[in-house]
Design a protein around this nucleic acid. Structure first.
Lengths: 120, 120
DNA sequence: CTGAATATATCGGCTGCCGATATATTCTGC
DNA sequence: GCAGAATATATCGGCAGCCGATATATTCAG
């Protein structure tokens, strides 16, 4: 599962949303750190639909604008749950290793010699 | 940052490793859920080196086989830390939404200023 | 009327993952 | 001694997927 797909599923996890709504929701729920692009969205939506992780819930015409709402399937919910689990485990493993690396002495705080040059 | 890059950085977080060692370490630390491929590895290694997130630590010839050890730079450590934070936050957000979606219209979540982001 | 926001969708370029492939040494089993 | 697996490096081409640019259409603010 790609990052984009994960965040689309997450945005749909609590309630059905339409494309543009997903775009804003992803940015909001990630605190602005993830910016799902328009060009990415529809490809992801098509793939997730083909994989039956989401389905077209309904179409509404509101104020002259078409809104196409998608929602998670049970399979999509399970996939998201599993992926969230993997991500949490990965993040946890990384943090643990960072801590181990710091105390392991193998990484002396190299703020001395090499840092003067900075980036090349 | 791609998934592959994240796991390579994680594998290097506690101590320097060589390519083949990274391959096995990623599989082990992810409990077999992530399988970093050989064809993926060297591209990732080159990119991370170009970005100065890792550096070539040393080269050893052990039992006739060349071992090329890489280690994290300070910048790489910071990047990994930041990425782990983002992943933890993403996983946490997903799980929270799954719960909200399941109870579907229950008590609105009172997420105050201190969001449940799983901060370290 | 213009520009921004809302809302949909497509296309081409580029990045990046992965299977296949190549090379070389050591170790295990027969 | 030889075959096959494991260790260890690296490259290449195909394909999937992200993203900027672009197009269309309506509503709202100025």
């Amino acid at each position: 599962m790609t990052q984009a797909a994960f965040f689309v599923l997450t945005a749909l996890a609590d309630e059905p949303r339409h494309g543009y709504g997903i775009l804003r929701e992803v940015e909001e729920l990630s605190d602005g750190t993830v910016q799902l692009r328009v060009g990415t969205l529809y490809g992801v939506l098509d793939r997730l639909t083909a994989d039956e992780l989401i389905v077209l819930d309904r179409e509404e015409v509101q104020q002259g604008r078409l809104r196409r709402y998608y929602r998670l399937t049970d399979e999509g919910m399970q996939a998201l749950d599993a992926e969230a689990e993997r991500m949490a485990a990965g993040a946890s493993a990384a943090k643990q290793r960072i801590a181990e690396g710091r105390k392991a002495g193998g990484t002396p705080p190299v703020t001395g010699p090499g840092l003067a040059g900075g980036l090349a």
